[in-house]
Design a protein around this nucleic acid. Structure first.
Length: 278
DNA sequence: CTTACGGCCTGTACGC
DNA sequence: TGCGTACAGGCCGTAA
């Protein structure tokens, strides 16, 4: 489920709640998610204070007091819930795989039915060069991300632009929804050869990627208020999509009158307007 | 190096 | 009601 905006919202919510707090108990309710939990996972985190929480692409990076750091990923179905005290209506269920309890009395649970998410321990000095992160492309909300930077990453790529946008080496954090949305907003066909997105088109696409992500983050933050529902669940919020999951509906582009279509690309659904996306 | 594809999991929506 | 199929916001390992 989560793409960059949702992960950003989760990070802010976790940061608001956890920075400066200390884990008093860490419980693993199974031995693995996508990957086995690192050796010493519980021992390394228990008793440690949380110093920083950041996002890189769709990864959650948590630096702990001392030399340890935690790399987390929500996969397709991961979420966190923060509870200030146990809520009777929300007992742990079979998909609550990790539970953190803190000195300030919080209980944070990680819930992930499909278990495509993961949590890995590393050393903070190795965060930048961790195999999971080393090949990730530029952050789309960063100062250095623009049309020329995007075009450079797309050069020589013989896949459709939609498929290329999902490659995290091209640009960090874009997933299926926002790839579709950004292409629609910039009027570019998802089928266009990636290497042919250059010049003004690349400028428009880079700007559109930045815009849709920023709007989604703003929407998430305001919807959740302090980045969490009253239930304490982080990261799930509804943003208005122009094309995603709108097959058969009218295109929202002014004076277009097209109908949103859906095609498979690289095993994923692409939603687009065949009329105004070229 | 890039690209294509199967696989990992569970849950849900839908057609019969 | 049940059963089968398709699909779901991600990414990894392997093969070509």
């Amino acid at each position: 489920m989560p793409e960059l905006p949702e992960v950003e919202t989760v990070c802010r919510g976790l940061a608001d709640a956890l920075i400066g707090d200390r884990f008093t108990r860490v419980t693993l309710r199974r031995a693995n998610l996508r990957f086995p939990f690192s050796d010493g996972f519980i021992e390394t985190l228990t008793g440690r204070r949380v110093e920083t929480i950041h996002r890189r692409a769709k990864y959650i990076l948590m630096q702990m007091e001392g030399e340890a750091a935690l790399i987390g990923h929500l996969g397709m179905s991961g979420s966190f819930r923060i509870e200030k005290s146990p809520i009777p209506e929300h007992p742990l269920d079979r998909h609550d795989h990790v539970v953190f309890e803190t000195e300030r009395g919080l209980r944070i649970r990680y819930h992930d039915p499909r278990r495509f998410g993961f949590m890995l321990l590393t050393e903070r000095a190795l965060l930048e060069t961790h195999p999971q992160l080393i090949n990730i492309g530029p952050e789309p909300l960063g100062n250095e991300f623009n049309g020329p930077a995007l075009a450079e990453r797309l050069a020589g790529r013989k896949t459709p632009i939609k498929t290329a946008l999902l490659d995290q080496r091209v640009v960090a954090g874009v997933g299926n929804i926002y790839a579709c949305e950004a292409l629609h907003r910039s009027g570019i066909s998802p089928k266009r050869l990636a290497a042919n997105v250059t010049g003004a088109r690349a400028d428009r696409l880079a700007a559109a990627i930045r815009q849709v992500l920023e709007e989604a983050i703003a929407s998430g933050g305001s919807t959740l208020r302090n980045y969490s529902h009253t239930s304490g669940e982080l990261g799930y919020f509804q943003h208005r999509f122009e094309v995603y999951d709108r097959e058969g509906a009218a295109c929202t582009t002014p004076d277009c009158n097209g109908v949103i279509g859906r095609i498979p690309q690289a095993g994923r659904s692409t939603f687009f307007c065949p009329k105004c996306q070229r």
